[in-house]
Design a protein around this nucleic acid. Structure first.
Lengths: 210, 210
DNA sequence: CGGCTAATTGACTTTAATCAACTACAGTGG
DNA sequence: CCACTGTAGTTGATTAAAGTCAATTAGCCG
């Protein structure tokens, strides 16, 4: 994540307290869902952070090289797998307590720090959507995302225009409109007006969004 | 970024020290490149974080709603604009000193914190690439990104396979191969082997990658 | 040298973008 | 109150970009 060379005392302080480990090409360092108790610094080689969809599609969120830190997670579990791209050596560190945002904290700095972490997670999840989902899947995912952040049970009010949605999902207005029409045709959603709708089948929408 | 409801004492502590401001629909809160001296909490309404390409393409990186914090930047300047989607009220806070990663710090926690911030930026930049660039533009951007992180002047060694590149850029191996062939045809790159190449015209690659 | 995988290239198909009407709707002023 | 206007949204026809399928070539390691 960060190039050690860009910081003073690059890896000296860090390396002193960690455990060195070596990985062969294609070897898994940790898998999606593993308990996230450590973070890592790359000594040499390269690591890819990737996640796989149920149907086999794969998405790589980042490549990490010598000097980069990775595996910093807000959650209890890693959100993506890490695999060695080539012959790689890393140093392993126990995750510091202050990383544990799951634990309730209330200072201003904790709130700001938590917002940053959450923002990073959301950006990664957004990249995954943009990189590997089809138009109809993007729309399903978008509606579910909006639904999760609203308080309503089934009703959903979209504050933004179709153009905004298109620019968020990497599509055109026309495609957004057509996909919403298809979801309506399939009885997964119902419109009250162009910006107010009901989600009729959350499970089906989840199935579509991968 | 973070839903205040998910934290104890949601906005009480924060709201106490900030300045409330109101925005009309479509109004700009801050623009890409503005000095990043503040961050914001949304009281009500909705904000979009967006960036515009030289040719007019627009990309929205995130929507923020009531309770979300946004505008937390590692850099001196905001990396994307923020605009009100609808009638919106926010509270403005001065950015805390410890956000200023540009200033050299060397403690372990600073390194970890900096890595997280950088990782967030990279994920946002990756999302922008995935959302609004064409295949050839993605490849140009990818080569430049790899070049920046290598020490070589013009030579570039790709540690990863074409499949890895495809999964990183949201493309197929065939498209990756065809785009590299086109860049070669246009004399922007030259191959020594399939994973070793020279960048012959950085400026042209930058122009292509938007 | 042979056998395997990675990478390239070509032919064709599919998806989403583009271009072009057309409809719905909100706000304005007669 | 209702016609007029302008914007947002939808729908259809066509094109362009990238994906798929298939065959071939290049590298690599025994």
């Amino acid at each position: 994540m960060i190039r050690a060379a860009a910081l003073p005392r690059p890896d000296g302080a860090l390396r002193a307290i960690g455990t060195v480990r070596h990985f062969a090409p294609q070897q898994t360092i940790f898998a999606e869902g593993d308990p996230a108790g450590h973070f890592m610094l790359i000594i040499h080689g390269m690591v890819r952070s990737c996640s796989t969809f149920s149907d086999g599609r794969r998405f790589i969120g980042a490549f990490y090289a010598a000097g980069d830190l990775f595996g910093l997670e807000r959650k209890e579990a890693y959100l993506a797998s890490a695999e060695a791209v080539c012959e790689t050596a890393i140093v392993l560190y126990p995750a510091p307590d202050w990383l544990d945002i799951a634990r309730p904290q209330d200072s201003l700095s904790s709130q700001v720090f938590g917002a940053m972490m959450l923002g990073a997670d959301q950006a990664r999840s957004h990249a995954r959507l943009l990189g590997r989902l089809h138009a109809i899947e993007k729309l399903s995912a978008f509606l579910l995302e909006r639904h999760e952040r609203s308080n309503q049970r089934l009703q959903l009010t979209l504050e933004m225009s179709r153009q905004d949605i298109a620019d968020y999902l990497g599509l055109t207005v026309e495609t957004v409109s057509r996909c919403l029409a298809q979801l309506k045709r399939d009885n997964l959603i119902r419109f009250h007006s162009s910006r107010r709708l009901d989600l009729l089948d959350i499970m089906a929408l989840q199935a579509i969004s991968g």
